[in-house]
Write a protein that binds this DNA or RNA. Structure first.
Ligand code: MN
Ligand code: MN
Ligand code: MN
Ligand code: MN
Lengths: 217, 217
DNA sequence: ATAAAAATTTAGACTAGCCTAAAAATAATT
DNA sequence: AATTATTTTTAGGCTAGTCTAAATTTTTAT
């Protein structure tokens, strides 16, 4: 049995390793969890003893098969709970993350499986992220940031890279959500900002930073 | 903010103090939580520093106003989650307690209030126990002798009117104790005797004199 | 290639929550 | 009332998870 703390480490290591396939540096983990570097190093050694990661000194850690599976199952719980909070309890999509951070550590397979059933086995969470199945299988999503998408084409919003409420509230203001159709009108080389039309409304202008955090397919 | 451990102590102290109005002995807490007596003493001192209980050395602890309120709000969460598990996730009433022991520590007022709404503001949990409102108000369970309780309903044993060992030994034989759940199957007008089921065991027959001395809610 | 800078690990310390064993206070017996 | 038994507290120690400061290794820049 893993403690909530250990589970959080696994989750962070999975998130960081899916960006760049390399070993995850202990400092990156520390930054993400807002703890001291020494603390992260210490825990990585413990996770290595438990065979959840492999740890090469001064290089970083990689999830083992077991560690990866555990991480996926926590992601599964997190995303199913988020879906429950939005679908059943009518929370907004920017209000659910912190609560799901707690709920994901509730230890009951039966509970999460029944929750999935209650929700009608959703494929994605309120942020467009795929929900792993009960075996921990996480479907590969081939999508890209809006910033890299082709001009003039229409792209369907599939998710967000940044899950912070600040960002999500900005998207609310722009009427951008999962499923929104965005046409890129023009790109401005000067600052990489882009002009877009959301669902055929009037054209708005967004920064590169926003465009990089909107995931489309 | 209270840790899950501290919350569990408060809950146990409330449960033990509602049986007998006296101060709760540290040993009773230790027994209930299955921890060493020394550990309970230690925590009681810490809770006293936080003004959640008053602690008189060698006498025991009593919840303060604040401590009582906190305890009631944990009970509220526990019972609402149990209701959710049974009503929405179709768990059986005997399967939900352990999971609710975890869920009751999730920290979000908004969550529990919305959960209450989703469930239609139930008055009691799957075990018939009352659910405190959002102010922590736990409706006063006006208790009565089993002899006066309604037929077919389930009643929770809250105490005894006769404290004699002869009576208590009879209750032991009948497997009736504080917290036992008694369903009244039938009342016989001839001698006011009644047929009951104790905790879903087989039906037994008790005299009016016994029924008048069992206090239920 | 060496020196400086940055990243990482090690060392030592702290708190929460638990333990056992010993001491002290209270309750029960004689 | 004195002795014995029971309950409760104190004392000291352990692990998980955190920290800061110092040492070490790796990377970068001269
Ligand atoms: Mn989230
Ligand atoms: Mn999400
Ligand atoms: Mn329960
Ligand atoms: Mn209950």
């Amino acid at each position: 049995m893993l403690s909530p703390t250990e589970e959080n480490y696994l989750k962070v290591i999975l998130a960081l390793s899916s960006k760049n396939e390399q070993a995850v540096h202990t400092n990156a983990i520390a930054a993400e969890l807002r703890i001291a570097a020494a603390t992260a190093t210490d825990m990585c050694k413990k996770l290595a003893v438990k065979k959840l990661v492999s740890h090469e000194k001064y290089k970083g850690v990689l999830l083992t098969k077991t560690g990866y599976l555990k991480a996926c199952l926590i992601i599964r719980k997190h995303r199913l709970w988020e879906t429950f909070l939005v679908e059943q309890l009518k929370f907004k999509w920017d209000e659910v993350h912190e609560i799901a951070e707690q709920l994901e550590h509730i230890d009951s397979e039966e509970l999460v499986n029944r929750l999935e059933l209650l929700l009608g086995s959703p494929k994605t969470d309120p942020h467009g992220d795929p929900i792993p199945d009960k075996n921990g299988y996480l479907p590969p999503s081939r999508s890209m940031p809006l910033a890299e998408a082709a001009t003039h084409d229409v792209h369907v919003v599939r998710g967000v890279a940044d899950q912070s409420s600040k960002f999500l509230q900005l998207l609310n203001k722009l009427n951008i959500g999962i499923g929104s159709r965005i046409r890129i009108m023009e790109k401005f080389d000067f600052d990489q900002s882009i002009a877009i039309k959301v669902d055929q409304q009037k054209t708005v202008h967004i920064s590169d930073q926003v465009a990089r955090n909107i995931i489309v397919k």
